[in-house]
């Protein structure tokens, strides 16, 4: 690989600055002692302390975590099962099952959100089910997480030597034993990466949550949105900074996991 020319390097640096500058501003201002305006009033960690005493923020954080954890558990399980089915079986309509999988990825969030809201209100009207709240939000998140999980896990399954599962069967393992003793351990890094991705998606989601949340089920993004309507306050900056850190750690972990797996594969091919 060559090194880039100086001009190209400058452009690259500017590009990254463009992406990360707004985020950096939020982080920097979360340490700004001045309460209002753009002026710098000195360094402080006061806003983080304020946040800890802010009951609505804490409750929103709890909802966000619950929403993220439960939707991730559900979508990872269902998405992995779907990936297994798509990768291992031949059945009529398989091509369409594969194509339809990508649709939720491309559909704008707002359309998805409106559709879910409509669906829930109809279901409520006809069956008295799906009262808006944390449960409806979890189900809503699962719907947009599943395609991402399935796509990641299916890629991992496709890279698996089919002879390994055949060897397991040949050695006396039934289908369930084959899955738990051979297939799952080998795709586990992909499943974990998919779960991290799903969790990050849930954590960051505003549109779908906003439309499907009920009373008493406010998440951090919704809380931030409603606070910002009254002007950006430093404690919101602090809260945003914390969300950024959690997202960043989850993304980093995903990348590291995938890289360690690639490294292992390289080693075993040698």
């Amino acid at each position: 690989m060559r090194s880039p020319s100086p001009r190209l390097s400058v452009i690259a640096v500017l590009l990254y600055a463009f992406i990360y500058a707004p985020i950096l501003v939020v982080i920097v201002y979360s340490f700004n002692a001045s309460r209002f305006g753009a002026g710098w009033g000195g360094f402080t960690t006061r806003w983080y302390e304020v946040l800890l005493e802010n009951a609505p923020a804490l409750s929103a954080a709890k909802s966000t975590l619950l929403l993220g954890i439960f939707s991730t558990l559900l979508s990872t399980t269902l998405g992995t099962a779907l990936a297994f089915g798509l990768a291992r079986f031949r059945f009529p309509g398989k091509a369409w099952a594969n194509r339809l999988l990508y649709v939720p990825v491309f559909i704008p969030d707002i359309v998805m959100a409106v559709a879910l809201l409509l669906f829930y209100s109809l279901a409520r009207q006809w069956f008295g089910l799906f009262e808006l709240g944390l449960t409806t939000m979890i189900l809503a998140h699962v719907t947009f997480q599943i395609p991402f999980v399935t796509i990641v896990v299916r890629a991992r399954l496709a890279g698996l030597d089919p002879a390994l599962e055949e060897a397991a069967r040949d050695l006396g393992a039934n289908e369930i034993q084959t899955f738990w003793h051979v297939t799952f351990p080998l795709i586990a890094p992909g499943v974990i990466a998919a779960a991290m991705l799903a969790f990050t998606l849930s954590l960051d989601d505003f549109v779908v949550s906003f439309f499907t949340s009920g009373p008493g089920a406010t998440t951090l993004p919704i809380l931030i949105y409603s606070s910002v309507k009254r002007g950006i306050t430093p404690d919101i900056n602090a809260l945003s900074t914390l969300i950024i850190i959690v997202s960043f750690v989850a993304t980093l972990a995903t990348t590291l996991l995938q890289r360690s797996q690639k490294y292992k594969n390289l080693k075993s091919e040698r």
Binding site: A163, A167, D170, K264
Partner: peptide, 13 residues
Amino acid sequence: VNTVFQSYALFPH
């Protein structure tokens, strides 16, 4: 019956 596979198919994990 048991098989010795061409690629060996040893379980890498």
